[in-house]
């Protein structure tokens, strides 16, 4: 089998590639395509948002005022910072600095926890005031009859985004385990790089969500 497995720097690429470089390029392309899929998926939600906002602009204006801009802003800063720590983890993996990979993955993980804690306080505050999606809406202060729709979009869009954050946290743990097993080296750091792609995407979605949800009021 020696002819089909070429060893580079301790890393053996899969048998159907000619080199570790080809394999890396293929993995990156696959991840980009997956990102395209994600864009289209969120795209559906943004289309729904656009349509309803065009139908009920004054309702969006009123309902948006009931979102906590401070908390949203805090989360924006948290996520942008976590993108930075993620990049640092990727750079550390390219240099094979095991300790630094773990440090930066850990920081990214902690920041994501922070994001979810803030989200928890936001959600629970709203639920307490009866601001629930669609048919479950019981709040009486918000008078516009279509306002429940805004909060449906709010919960669905931020909820699916939060789900992506949780998946990302799982990926951090998975990367940390593989780092501790010494699987990454300057010759092979594909998974760290690809999770980095994913994490920036999750960050980007929030950067669109924040102004569209919190700042239209």
């Amino acid at each position: 089998m020696s002819s089909t497995h070429i060893t580079t720097g301790g890393y053996q690429h899969a048998h159907h590639y000619k080199s570790a470089g080809d394999e890396f390029e293929a993995s990156k392309q696959g991840m980009w395509l997956f990102m395209v899929t994600e864009v289209l998926m969120f795209g559906g939600l943004f289309v729904a948002y656009t349509m309803f906002r065009a139908m009920y602009p004054e309702m969006f204006h009123e309902a948006s005022k009931h979102l906590a801009v401070n908390l949203g802003l805090t989360n924006t800063i948290i996520l942008i910072t976590s993108s930075l720590t993620m990049v640092l983890a990727v750079i550390a993996s390219q240099k094979g600095q095991k300790g630094r990979i773990l440090l930066h993955l850990g920081l990214t993980f902690l920041l994501s926890c922070g994001f979810l804690v803030v989200k928890y306080f936001e959600y629970s505050g709203k639920i307490h005031h009866g601001i629930l999606p669609g048919g479950l809406f019981t709040n009486t202060e918000i008078t516009h009859p279509k306002a429940p729709l805004f909060f449906s979009l709010y919960y669905v869009m931020t909820g699916i985004h939060a789900f992506h954050v949780i998946v990302g946290m799982g990926l951090m743990v998975w990367l940390a385990v593989r780092t501790m097993r010494n699987e990454f080296s300057p010759a092979f750091y594909t998974p760290v790089e690809l999770v980095g792609f994913y994490w920036h995407f999750v960050d980007m979605v929030w950067i669109f969500l924040f102004p569209l949800m919190y700042l239209v009021g």
């Binding site: 999606p133 669609g134 048919g135 279509k146 429940p148 729709l149 449906s152 979009l153 669905v156």
Partner: peptide
């Protein structure tokens, strides 16, 4: 009951 497709809720 998010209502995005439900005319009853808008």
């Amino acid at each position: 009951q998010v209502g995005i497709f439900d005319p009853k809720i808008g």
